[in-house]
């Protein structure tokens, strides 16, 4: 009996101390972690919305916007659309999209489109699980983005050549290429169907999540 009580006391004590330590650590790091997360989003938006016409996806430019797009987002059908403004005008949009039917799972990417004609200004792969060396080339600025950036929804046929489109499939990774085109298509659909909401809609609160109503 005495042993049992000792066990309970020791384990409880150590677990409490561990919890206390972690709480302090969390307190010390939380602000920095949130700051990093925000900087990562802003940097990604900067990369897909460069101030160049037409942009070269392998180069880094100044950002086209002078606001803070992550604080000026609209929520449309469950998707968060970041608005990039120059002065007061919404000049471009960026949104995170998921490319379906990738070779392995899905591909998540941030896509930037120009507001007046829907031109693809940049695309950045955020997460994927494609085969290293083959499908992973979707992140290659030259091979993948280079073929798509600078085109509006109507200036080329958005499909791989195998399907009768204008985009060269990556060698050995046709499925990954299709998933990338699918990702861009989702952003283009958002631009086509909801342009007015994106320009005039109310910004969602900074901490409010975006959910399907």
């Amino acid at each position: 009996m005495k042993d049992t009580i000792k066990m309970i006391v020791v384990l409880t004590l150590i677990a409490t101390l561990a919890g206390l330590g972690l709480a302090l650590m969390n307190e010390a790091t939380q602000a920095d972690i949130e700051d990093n997360a925000r900087r990562a989003i802003l940097d990604a938006i900067h990369q897909v919305l460069p101030d160049a016409d037409p942009p070269n996806p392998c180069q880094r430019y100044d950002a086209i916007f002078d606001n803070e797009p992550d604080r000026d987002a609209v929520c449309i059908e469950g998707a968060t659309v970041f608005r990039a403004r120059k002065g007061k005008d919404v000049v471009a949009m960026a949104m995170e999209v998921v490319g379906d039917n990738a070779y392995s799972g899905t591909i998540s990417a941030l896509v930037g489109l120009r507001m007046d004609d829907g031109m693809l200004m940049g695309i950045k792969v955020l997460a994927h699980a494609e085969t290293p060396g083959l499908g992973s080339l979707i992140s290659d600025c030259q091979l993948m983005s280079g073929q798509m950036v600078g085109h509006t929804p109507s200036s080329i046929k958005w499909a791989v050549k195998k399907d009768g489109g204008d985009i060269d499939q990556l060698t050995g990774a046709t499925i990954s290429t299709r998933a990338m085109i699918n990702a861009v298509a989702k952003a283009q659909a958002m631009w086509r169907d909801h342009r007015q909401t994106i320009i005039n809609g109310d910004a969602m609160p900074a901490d409010g999540g975006c959910h399907v109503p």
Binding site: V10, I14, A15, G21, D32
Partner: peptide, 21 residues
């Protein structure tokens, strides 16, 4: 169990530190 708690605590702390700094 005590060792596991101790180790898990340090791992979580390292994870937070890496994410922050």
């Amino acid at each position: 169990p005590v060792y596991v708690v101790v180790i898990a605590t340090f791992v979580s702390a390292v994870d937070m530190a890496l994410k922050a700094w």
